[in-house]
Design a protein around this nucleic acid. Structure first.
Length: 447
RNA sequence: GCCCUGGUAGUAUAGCUCGGUCCAGUAUAAGCGGCUGUCGCCCGCUCGACCCGGGUUCAAAUCCCGGCCAGGGCGCCA
């Protein structure tokens, strides 16, 4: 379809025009004041002699009102060429108006059109006709123009702020570990190979080894960053690239870092609830700040509960998803599962001192979804090497890691929290693709 | 990797069971025109689609086969 503006229209330069106010700043108290606003045309309602433009910027929406016979001719003519999602600048006068959204509107004196948009747009940006996730992701930045979608990422931003400030105040230092790693033998999860000069390397699937090493120097570290897993998962809670919040702490056991985790979750929920009222309202979601401590269930207790619900698992088995769904119904909030069988956990998870069959590994669950996994780590080199062998891993490929255990490795513990899964809980969104700006899964590599 | 479901205009859907009523209906978007207080504005007109290939049949959006694509579930996820 032809865009009537494209062929003939001359676009304006920004020139010396600069924003004085955001949409959210405009209210009846500014009556009579001249302001300059920038943004995108969200909607146009043309009543004939009267035309309403809804302008959107990063703070919200604003009404521009154009009376055909009361504003300068140039503005009227430009306003007639506008279409949805053009980016424009408006210089105008604030008018107190009870009938306008927010009690005020802008009567324009000058309009500059910076950029046009293709019509029709690939999505109904007003949200009246809902699009499927696949269509939305293909036009992701346009999809993100919708306030509900922006709200998700404002919640994420607030959560990140809360995480960083909370951990920093506890004396935990933020670090960055390599994304490019050499060994494919860290464990079972599939790695993405990368060409590294004339060698083969891999994208990191976890900061596990590095964060353990760093507690030798900094005692408590955290990292927030992307990791990569080449799993061919096809679910609403897995992606091949995901952001992990990782913590590692020296001279600590599992219970110590579980305390940090539950306090952190509590703090973030409280912070987001208080600071993202508008966002949560847009999302139609309410956050209930969880009480600490969280419920703790042992693996053995979980097996018993499942047995009562007619699901039999042999001791030592991992818990399958359908069983987790049952657990989620029994415990519809945050809870820990502790005392996992050592053989069901990673090689670095510490067996309990009084019963090596059981480990100091734990999972933090929200209903049926695993949010975080962690535990106390083995700090004894001999034991770690034994565990590697038991899991069929070669001690040779962990040589540089094992070497760091010769420098006084203290007892330590930590966890990794899936950021997007946590944001799903905070926003009430059911598909992880919606809470990631540009999600990557086994089929999606663009945008 | 396995299983299930689906693919109709820019978007979202009806029609498919039981082939002909469908040169495919509706909403929204888009285009043109009208309208001075809209806020999912309203009114009129217009544009625009059966995933690809093969088969069955007098006749296929509809039934069959293959492919491609998508969604969901399981497994996997140290």
């Amino acid at each position: 379809m032809l865009n009537r503006a494209c062929s003939s229209m001359v676009l304006d330069k920004m020139g010396d025009m600069r924003r004085t106010h955001y949409a959210a700043d405009i209210g009846p108290e500014l009556e009579g004041q001249e302001v300059t606003v920038f943004g995108w045309v969200h909607e146009i309602r043309d009543l004939g002699g009267l035309r309403f433009l809804i302008l959107q910027d990063r703070t919200g929406k604003l009404q521009i009102t154009i009376h055909r016979h009361k504003v300068v001719k140039e503005v009227v003519e430009k306003a007639e060429t506008l279409q949805k999602q053009y980016s424009i600048g408006i210089k105008g006068t604030v008018k107190k108006m009870g009938k306008a959204p927010g009690g005020a509107e802008i009567v324009p004196n000058e309009m500059r059109i910076f950029s046009v948009s293709q019509q029709p747009l690939p999505l109904d940006i007003t949200g009246r006709t809902k699009a499927e996730i696949d269509v939305r992701l293909d036009a992701r930045v346009l999809d993100l123009r919708r306030e509900e979608n922006q709200a998700i990422f404002r919640v994420q931003h607030a959560a990140l702020q809360a995480i960083r400030s909370y951990l920093s105040e506890k004396g935990v230092m933020e670090v960055f570990t390599p994304r490019i790693i050499v060994s494919a033998t860290e464990g079972g999860a599939a790695l993405f190979p990368v060409a590294y000069f004339n060698r083969e390397a891999f994208l990191a699937q976890s900061p596990q080894l590095y964060k353990e090493q760093l507690i030798l120097d900094f005692e408590q570290v955290f990292e927030i960053g992307p990791f990569f897993r080449a799993e061919e998962s096809h679910t609403r809670r897995h992606l091949s690239e995901f952001i992990s919040v990782d913590l590692e702490k020296a001279f600590a056991n599992a219970e110590d870092v579980m305390n940090v985790l539950e306090e952190l979750i509590h703090h973030v929920c409280k912070y987001v609830k208080e600071n993202c009222k508008r966002e949560l309202e847009l999302l139609g979601h309410e956050i209930v700040v969880p009480e600490v401590p969280f419920k703790r269930l042992t693996y053995a207790q979980v097996l018993e509960e499942l047995e009562e619900n007619k699901i039999h698992l042999n001791w030592g088995e991992d818990i399958p998803t359908p069983a987790y769904r049952i657990l989620g119904k029994l415990h519809p909030y945050y809870y820990f599962i502790t005392d996992w069988p050592t053989k069901a956990k990673a090689f670095y998870i510490k067996p309990k001192d009084d019963n090596p069959e059981l480990s100091e590994g734990f999972d933090l669950m929200w209903k049926w979804v695993e949010l975080s996994s962690g535990g106390a780590r083995i700090h004894d080199k001999e034991l770690l090497m034994k565990r590697l062998s038991e899991q069929g891993l070669s001690t040779e490929s962990f040589k540089t890691h094992l070497q760091t255990f010769d420098y006084g490795m203290p007892p330590h513990a930590g966890w990794g929290l899936g950021l997007a899964r946590f944001v799903m809980v905070l926003t009430g969104v059911k598909n992880i693709r919606e809470v990631v700006l540009f999600p990557r899964d086994q089929v999606r590599l663009t945008p």
